[in-house]
């Protein structure tokens, strides 16, 4: 009897077949590097309403292998979208398909290939790091022996091997986040969803975390939500800009900057004129130098005689689409 969850080409898996017990054979696709596995997460006209509020409004897109950055201000609907992708919320309308099948119909089979780090990552305060990961491994369907091996590998990878016996409640914020990413990776997921993974981390931790995500992102679909532009810029292959529950634009950083209808200008002005410029233009940066200020301005036209054209960055795109709301809490 053959039970196939996600069937790869026969020749490929036969070559990597391993005997687990006398009657039980397992093929781990993660070991089959280079195998052509088509992974496709299709979001079709997805809508989620909470009474009068439409948190996600007719979102449609297709995600395959790679790192996707979901960028938007607070309240844009990022978390709601991600919670639907994790089967935590049922959509009011629309469908989410994994390789053509509805993820809610796939149920546990879909969650088996899912890794999720929620924005508000909670844990069991009195569990040690190791116990916590072993528990999550067990509810993710890993056998104890596999869980032990995987936990050891991930603890090394996230740099927490030395604190594996420390209680979760005694970890620092950064350490907790790293445990969070480790738990998301326990089942070696094909889909990794990270909701604001760097929120609240200090600059060092953030850099470390970004690198870790990049390292873990190979050969899987990673959807990373944040309102911190620099995080996305560093690690995402493709960016989805979300505003008022909709994906307003998507593409690579280059696509987005190139497609921006405004240009970026660098202007040096007396400090007394700064207020006047901020009222007339979208100013993405103000730097004060020896009595004068250097402004980074988004404008379709040259804002001043001495304005110099600059190369646009993702932050400028963010400012263009989100305007003043882009300067909301925690944004960088």
């Amino acid at each position: 009897m053959i039970h196939v969850l996600f069937a790869p080409p026969m020749a490929a898996w036969r070559a990597r077949l391993k005997m687990r017990s006398h009657f039980h054979y397992v093929l781990c696709l993660s070991e089959a590097k280079g195998m052509d596995i088509s992974m496709k997460l299709e979001i079709e006209d997805l809508t989620k309403q909470f009474q009068d509020v439409t948190a996600v409004d007719g979102v449609s897109c297709t995600l395959t292998t790679g790192v996707y950055g979901l960028l938007g201000v607070n309240g844009a609907g990022k978390t709601t979208l991600m919670r639907m992708l994790c089967t935590l919320l049922r959509p009011t309308a629309g469908r989410i398909l994994w390789d053509g099948q509805d993820i809610f119909a796939l149920d546990g089979a879909y969650r088996r290939i899912l890794g999720y780090l929620p924005q508000d990552f909670g844990f069991y305060p009195d569990f040690t790091v190791r116990d916590y990961l072993h528990y999550i491994a067990s509810i993710k369907g890993l056998r104890p022996a596999a869980a032990r091996k995987r936990t050891a590998v991930l603890l090394q990878q996230v740099g927490l091997a030395k604190v594996e016996n420390r209680k979760m409640k005694k970890l620092s914020g950064g350490m907790k986040r790293r445990v969070g990413i480790a738990q998301a990776m326990l089942n070696d997921p094909q889909i990794l969803i990270l909701d604001e993974p760097t929120a609240g981390l200090d600059p060092n931790e953030r850099i470390r975390f970004r690198n870790l995500i990049s390292e873990l992102a190979q050969d899987r679909l990673v959807l990373l939500s944040t309102h911190i532009v620099s995080d996305i810029e560093y690690i995402a292959n493709e960016i989805l800009l979300m505003k008022d529950g909709r994906i307003c634009i998507s593409g690579t950083t280059e696509d987005l900057t190139a497609g921006m209808p405004e240009q970026v200008w660098l202007v040096s002005v007396p400090r007394s004129e700064v207020v006047s410029y901020t009222k007339r233009y979208k100013v993405s940066n103000i730097k004060t130098l020896h009595g004068e200020a250097r402004l980074r301005i988004l404008s379709a036209e040259k804002p001043a005689e001495n304005a110099v054209l600059e190369e646009a960055m993702l932050e400028d795109v963010f400012l263009h689409y989100f305007g003043e709301r882009a300067g909301g809490e925690n944004a960088v």
Binding site: M1, I2, H3, V4, L5, F6, A7, W13, S21, F23, H24, Y25, V26, L27, C28, L29, S30, I37, R112, I113, Y135, S138, I139, G141, L142, R143, P144, N187, D188, P189, Q190, D219, R220
Partner: peptide, 30 residues
């Protein structure tokens, strides 16, 4: 990537093996 293919010799054997492992996993979660 944890999708896997499980081959069993026959339905009876599979049931017995699965029950044992499921029970063990269940007890671990308890």
């Amino acid at each position: 990537m944890y999708s896997c293919i499980i081959l069993e010799k026959g339905p009876v054997v599979k049931m017995r093996y699965k029950k044992r492992t499921d029970f063990g996993d269940g007890m671990r979660q308890v």
